[in-house]
Design a protein around this nucleic acid. Sequence first.
DNA 1: GTTCGATTGAAACGAGTGTTTGAATGTTAG
DNA 2: CTAACATTCAAACACTCGTTTCAATCGAAC
Lengths: 214, 214
Amino acid sequence: MNQATSTCDRILDSAEQLFAEEGFHATSLRQITQAAEVNLAAVNYHFGSKQALILAVFRRRLDALNRARLVQLEQALAQGKPPQLEAVLEAFVVPALAFTHGSADAGHRFMRILMRALADRDEQLHRALSAEYAHVMQRFARAIAEALPGLHERDLRRQLDFIVGALTYTMAECEVSDGREIAADLVRFAAAGLRKAISSRTKPGAVRTLEIHP
Amino acid sequence: MNQATSTCDRILDSAEQLFAEEGFHATSLRQITQAAEVNLAAVNYHFGSKQALILAVFRRRLDALNRARLVQLEQALAQGKPPQLEAVLEAFVVPALAFTHGSADAGHRFMRILMRALADRDEQLHRALSAEYAHVMQRFARAIAEALPGLHERDLRRQLDFIVGALTYTMAECEVSDGREIAADLVRFAAAGLRKAISSRTKPGAVRTLEIHP
DNA sequence: GTTCGATTGAAACGAGTGTTTGAATGTTAG
DNA sequence: CTAACATTCAAACACTCGTTTCAATCGAAC
């Protein structure tokens, strides 16, 4: 509203960076406002409280990330009647490393924040996370169920947790430059795991199975 | 040294529980000492500092966990010349939910702490974690390489990260009672992913592949 | 120019933090 | 018993935290 970047945005940028580096509780408002070159009281004036700032930092990126995921998912669904499993998984994984709005490693930073939030037991933050994610996860679960008929929804939900865990941990831990390669590996890894889940679940006694991956 | 549980142990128990529920930075020494019914100064007397207490909480469980993993891995390796992939993965996954020394959900609690530590950027804690884990991970990587000849070590390391992420996230997030079932699913999931990785990497152009799971 | 609302600024508030201190207490060996 | 040591205790230390307050400043509408 005034200069190159508004006070609100400068606070959000600095908070995002410091939260990723130090954590939510370990980062003080004085660190944030000093890095953002704004007054200490600006945080409580614009956001109300530190907790509200944390949520705001979250929503800004998570909205964009999940929107990008859904867009790519629609593209995948539009291409084939029974959607290609790999295309669905790519729609979930690839935007996680490509949605960087600002600097090049903003995605990496945010993944670190996301992992902190998942590890955190903060109720309010957890509920806000679920609210953002529940719709998206359900949409992807449905798409995967279409691509892999025969997989029970209850099992599917757990497999999705595996993928979320692997994605979040790996993206937060590894080098930024390897992002694309990691995503490709994870898609392959997850696709194989999902296909095995269906064949094992439908025939639990069969140890010798045969799979064809088109 | 004196009663049913020593001061040190009571501090470690209370700290572990509170760290899992609230996080490292969000938990104060006064909360811990009050829950443990010991004097505030006891922490600094017995452990030196809060940071040292965090490391102590960690080492106590992680040592036992990784020791149990290696024992089960040796059993798996002793059974077959080329080790069974599923047996190797079980040796990594199952102890994570079975190593509970004290109360029934101690393992669940510790997984939450472990996830916090992985998310945390604290250098000292991270180095301590690597020191505990590096040896174990290398041992498992070698075992998996034996079970799956043809898989490059560089790729294997990344697949292991996927498994660690999936295990930590799922164990920390889900119900305690589902532990055994989750472990079985994760082993199946990971085994399929690893087998696909080797076949995809050796023949990168081949989209139509065939797999037999003995 | 004046008025009014929104924003920024410097300073203080009260509460909570990890840590230290020094005396009191318990425990063991000579 | 007593000396020496390890442990516990209550109190205080110096500091940082998130939040609040109130005056100063800005920007437009009248």
